[in-house]
């Protein structure tokens, strides 16, 4: 059923509800724990799995084409800027991978308003923010207008 939640691990914090792009992680009113209300609208995007502080969410591949017995588990460590995967095959083989996710501290992006206010005349040009410097070429390419309207 794409994602499912282990009863004993979930504490009902709602992080998964907050993040799911499909709006399908909901809190069950009786158990006060989360579950996937619409497995057939789940993309197996793992956004909820990565966000769950209790590691209570797992994925069981779609029943209509994924035989049982596999698992793809993830640990996303924001502070370390790394993500780790453990893939278990139906026949028991295991593969592990670890990849970087970010090279700068979270929250470190410089907001556009912290740059010098652009010249008012700039608004009428084709240049976007930080150009031409950010292009790392001398000038923004253009096409001569005379070549226009050739059908």
């Amino acid at each position: 059923m794409p994602t499912f939640v282990y009863m004993t691990r979930c504490d009902g914090c709602g992080e998964c509800v907050d993040i799911c792009p499909s709006d399908i992680m909901h809190i069950d009113r009786t158990y006060r724990r989360a579950y996937n209300i619409e497995p057939n609208f789940c993309w197996e995007c793992y956004s909820c799995v990565k966000a769950c502080p209790q590691h209570a969410i797992d994925v069981r591949g779609y029943a209509d084409f994924a035989p049982l017995g596999h698992s793809v588990r993830v640990l996303r460590e924001e502070e370390k800027g790394m993500i780790s995967w453990k893939i278990k095959y139906r026949d028991g083989r295991v593969k592990e991978f670890r990849f970087p996710i970010r090279t700068t501290p979270w929250g470190s992006i410089k907001p556009p308003a912290d740059y010098t206010v652009p010249d008012a005349a700039g608004l009428g040009t084709a240049l976007l923010a930080h150009e031409p410097e950010a292009l790392e070429v001398d000038a923004l390419p253009t096409l001569p207008l005379s070549r226009n309207n050739k059908v």
Binding site: W43, Y46, V72, I83, W85, F99
Partner: peptide, 22 residues
């Protein structure tokens, strides 16, 4: 690693299919 990361970064469901179908 490049082959697997390709999916683990953007289509995890494919990794699930491979694991489930050996």
């Amino acid at each position: 690693e490049i082959g697997w990361e390709d999916f683990l970064d953007m289509t995890i469901g494919q990794a699930v299919v491979w694991a489930s179908q050996n």
